[in-house]
Design a protein around this nucleic acid. Structure first.
Lengths: 169, 169
DNA sequence: TCGAACTATTTCAAGCTTAAAGTAATATCC
DNA sequence: GGATATTACTTTAAGCTTGAAATAGTTCGA
């Protein structure tokens, strides 16, 4: 793990080519992770305290709010980047709460269309409004141009990750 | 939700002051989240496929690798930003695997010190080495200065979030 | 020193999450 | 048309995660 004991430890060390050392990328990943975890735990806590719901349920409803005609389970699973079985359980619970509606999909007896009930839509919109304020205040100390740069670099990181994962490029 | 129907929809719209609209911050949050999720799921998959372990176990061992004398459960819980009960279960499983060791803490009969066994240390170091390569290749398309900027802006976002959450500043 | 407040950890119930295996319906190919 | 593959979804077992309540030990003030 520590194969550079003979190298100088001053400021220049950072830019010396050290094959096999990727500590900077590791630190970047850990910071991305801790930033996300910090924000997400707070959002989870607030959703529970103020709306007695969970983040996965909120996220699922957010997808459905954008799809007036409803969505198939598989589409939800793709958009939320979670497994099919996961969606099945989430939808079950939201239907039991009266916030969602299952109906057979036209032209495909395997599939079903899930959509928000009127109550579900009302409930979601009220939460979404407050949620948006939470997020805004969390990023409040970043100037508009910093937000833009962050947005762009995260996009690039995502693209880089996707290529690395799929083996492209 | 849509109270700006009378405003122009051209490029200038972005910079007009619209009280109550925070869609950009929302998009930033969603991108941060999807970037993190994409990378994390891949790391989880690889840890399982190649080392038959999980991310929480890996993270816990990473903390212990930096603490030669061991760590108390509460300290682990703080550093990993998870609940106490969570740590109890994780440590149980890692002890059962022979990778961790529990021992009573000196001067406090409530607490215990957890440390890596020699096998645990060997196992972790082998994984950490490969893990570091995975992370490096995931961020490979970002230039050094882009990584630096991203690091800095994430730090600032984290600070902003922390202040917003604790009610400071 | 006694009791109250605090701290470290465990236990519990509920929900989230996944991979793998199973069921049912659709699509494709000959 | 009928075998085969694919697709949509559900089920299951195992592990992760949390908040709340319980247990045990420590600290601190009167």
């Amino acid at each position: 793990m520590d194969d550079m004991s003979e190298l100088p430890l001053d400021a220049e060390t950072k830019v010396i080519e050290r094959p096999g050392d990727h500590k900077d990328e590791l630190r970047l990943w850990l910071r991305l992770l801790s930033c996300q975890t910090l924000i997400e735990s707070e959002i989870r806590r607030r959703l529970r305290d103020r709306f007695d719901t969970t983040l996965p349920r909120f996220d699922l409803m957010a997808q459905l709010d954008k799809a007036p005609v409803g969505m198939k389970l598989g589409e939800l699973s793709q958009r939320l980047m979670v497994s099919n079985g996961n969606i099945t359980g989430l939808v079950d619970r939201l239907v039991a709460q009266g916030l969602l509606d299952r109906q057979p999909a036209p032209n495909d007896r395997r599939a079903q269309l899930v959509k928000l009930t009127p109550e579900g839509r009302r409930t979601f919109r009220a939460m979404a409004c407050v949620h948006e304020e939470w997020i805004a205040s969390i990023f409040a100390e970043l100037a508009a141009d910093e937000q833009e740069t962050l947005m762009r670099l995260l996009g690039k990181a995502k693209e880089s990750a996707r290529k690395s994962i799929t083996g492209d490029g």
